[in-house]
Design a protein around this nucleic acid. Structure first.
Length: 352
DNA sequence: TCTGGGGTCCTAGGACCC
DNA sequence: TCTGGGGTCCTAGGACCC
């Protein structure tokens, strides 16, 4: 078997199907088959709260991740609403990743429900099927697996494989599968960029692949422009990095159910956020180099102001004082809907 | 559809220095 | 004296992703 196949390197992308909903249905098996919406504290009457995810049954009612819970309730009064439980998702994710590490593959974790795998084999489909079976047996969660020559191809392939399937997208079938799809189908081209490309007459992947890199650079910048064409050609990063990701920064933000107008109130909430972020940084053993304060006012206008610190610090009083000083540079004449504090971390030398 | 929270990277313009 | 360039840092915002 496999006498005509070549043993070579592959990139696999594993994507857990409906991860959050899947974890919740394991805890609440009686809800299987019902429309379930997960988000916020699980109270669908709360304003300014959106769905983190929705089961397929809920999606049939037009409920998706990002749908306001109050809208979801209106569209499907029979839906079950559950609060989000990040520690539970963290734990389930760790169990899945442990399964992957038992295979002879290099594992690069991409968030709770995704991982890229580097494998050397003559039969990636069999490997993928073995992975799916092991994940299901040990965690009762389903996943889709994409097979490619690089991360971009593998990522798109796992999307094509859903639900619970396996799909191979390599340079051999790239043009056949992708050429007539819209540029938005590429990983890294969103609605805004797709619209700008369309304005240049570039609607499909094939059209983008044939575009002049210099024209793209002039329109989108020296890095992004040529990169878009690169994506359209099916190229991408193929290196699996197994060392843990080192975060560049950290942030906390809060949308208030009722707008803040009292300055003392605003100061108080900003102080709490700053203390929270500093505590997170200290827990992670990181130093802070820059502070950004984000303010969203009515009508949904978002502004940021930032300050680079004279020296890296972990001192809560310094961060709080800096955040309050930055807040002074914001226009606070309109009611405040959201406050956020973000910090940049010192990066250790020679990191990627 | 009255619009969350947490990330990453890129760009453009200005300041400042040589 | 009308006027160089390059390099780096900083800031604000845009875009994308899950």
């Amino acid at each position: 078997m496999g006498s005509t196949s070549t043993r070579r390197d592959w990139i696999l992308h594993l994507d857990l199907d409906q991860f959050i909903a899947g974890v919740e249905l394991l805890r609440h098996p009686e809800l299987r088959g019902r429309p379930v919406v997960v988000g916020g504290s699980g109270d669908p009457t709360q304003p300014r709260t959106v769905a983190a995810t929705a089961t397929y049954e809920a999606r049939e009612h037009g409920i998706h991740s990002g749908t306001p819970l109050r809208t979801a309730l209106r569209r499907c009064p029979d839906a079950v609403f559950l609060p989000t439980d990040p520690p539970a998702y963290e734990a389930a994710s760790a169990r899945v990743m442990a399964v992957l590490r038992d295979f002879p593959v290099r594992v690069e974790i991409w968030g709770w429900d995704e991982a890229f795998l580097g494998a050397t084999t003559d039969d990636p489909e069999t490997l993928a099927a073995d992975l799916q079976r092991a994940v299901h047996t040990r965690t009762h969660l389903d996943c889709s697996i994409g097979i490619g020559d690089n991360k971009h191809q593998a990522k798109l392939a796992s999307g094509l494989a859903k639900p619970a399937g396996i799909h191979r997208l390599t340079s051999d079938n790239w043009a056949t599968v992708m050429n007539e799809r819209p540029t938005h189908a590429l990983w890294g081209i969103g609605a805004r960029t797709a619209a700008k490309l369309a304005a240049l007459g570039l609607h499909t992947v094939a059209q983008l692949a044939a575009a002049d890199p210099a024209d793209l650079a002039a329109r989108f910048g020296p890095t992004n422009g040529p990169w878009y064409r690169y994506l359209a050609l099916g190229k991408g990063e193929a290196e699996i990095v197994t060392t843990p990701w080192i975060p560049r920064g950290h942030s906390r933000e809060i949308t208030f159910q009722h707008d803040l107008t009292d300055r003392a109130d605003i100061d108080h909430h900003l102080t709490t956020l700053a203390e929270h972020v500093t505590h997170d940084a200290t827990t992670a053993g990181r130093e802070i180099t820059k502070v950004t304060v984000k303010v969203r006012t009515t009508p949904f206008q978002t502004r940021t102001r930032q300050s680079t610190l004279p020296a890296p610090t972990t001192d809560p009083a310094t961060i709080t004082r800096t955040a309050l000083a930055i807040l002074d540079r914001h226009d606070l004449t309109r009611p405040v809907r959201l406050l956020g504090v973000a910090v940049d971390y010192t990066m250790p030398p020679t990191t990627r």
